[in-house]
Design a protein around this nucleic acid. Structure first.
Lengths: 142, 142
DNA sequence: CCTTGACCTCAAGTCGACTTGAAGTAGAAC
DNA sequence: GTTCTACTTCAAGTCGACTTGAGGTCAAGG
């Protein structure tokens, strides 16, 4: 068997073993079996873990990911869900772009105090009016 | 006095009153005084709240913001800190851009399963290698 | 055979930013 | 003067994704 020890999976996937147990509890991954008490993993779990990591960085919650990546069988990922997430990312990217530019301006702005800088004030107004949303839940892009 | 009631501040700032009390406890804002038990606020608190909101969307923690926005006196914001945050945002924006494009491709990709799509596999490898970081702490951009 | 130490389980803790709930108070309308 | 109700305090709860700690097990090396 080329089955992997939990420590090896952890090391190769770049996550602590505790995370692997946690993911198992959540139904995201599963060992092929046990040797004594110890979990043995098929190397394919690494790909699954990569997929999970990818889902996380795209802003999916573990619960959402659990729906796409059942521990048995191949991942089934709804393409429209991907498209939706891409849209969401795109919106967030544009917001962040505005924010970045404004921060840059404020950093370089010669006004004695930021409060007196028109750009900064514009930002404040935008923030106050809610057009630049504050991150509530963990989203890719806050 | 044109002082404001907590309810009015809450409504105008678009946050619940509980948040205002919480911010006060954190040293982010302060009422000018009390009428009976009730907090009275200077209208300037709205600007301060806008600044706090802005800081949050830029990815600063409340503790960081507390350092910039002392409840007394004008905000003192380090320009290099702004520049650093802008840089950080910029990096995150680029990462998210790659991710968005890849998601779009995967959504449109004709490969029967995502696992067989080269672009998707490329993403997986990137996620696995850590070049597309998973949001650990709440960052603007995850 | 015995020790070692990596693994195991399960419950509880952490972190940040708030929210919620119970119990109390006081300004204002009647 | 009574009632109404928006406010008050303080402690505890929530959410997501894990981590940590105590106490137990067992395969492998000496």
């Amino acid at each position: 068997m080329t089955d992997l020890d939990i420590a090896e999976v952890a090391q190769r996937a770049g996550v602590p073993a505790s995370t692997l147990r946690f993911y198992e509890e959540k139904g995201l991954i599963a060992p092929t079996g046990r040797r004594g008490l110890r979990r043995q993993y098929d190397p394919g779990v690494l790909e699954r873990l990569a997929l999970i990591a990818l889902g996380r960085t795209a802003g999916f919650s573990l619960d959402e990911i659990a729906h796409m990546v059942a521990p048995d069988g191949p991942p089934r990922i709804d393409r429209s869900m991907l498209a939706d997430k891409a849209e969401e990312l795109d919106r967030r990217i544009r917001e962040l772009g505005v924010l970045r530019d404004s921060l840059r301006h404020a950093a370089a702005c010669p006004a004695p105090s930021h409060i007196e800088c028109p750009t900064f004030r514009g930002l404040l107004d935008a923030a106050a009016s809610g057009s630049v949303p504050t991150p509530r839940r963990r989203m890719p892009g806050g």
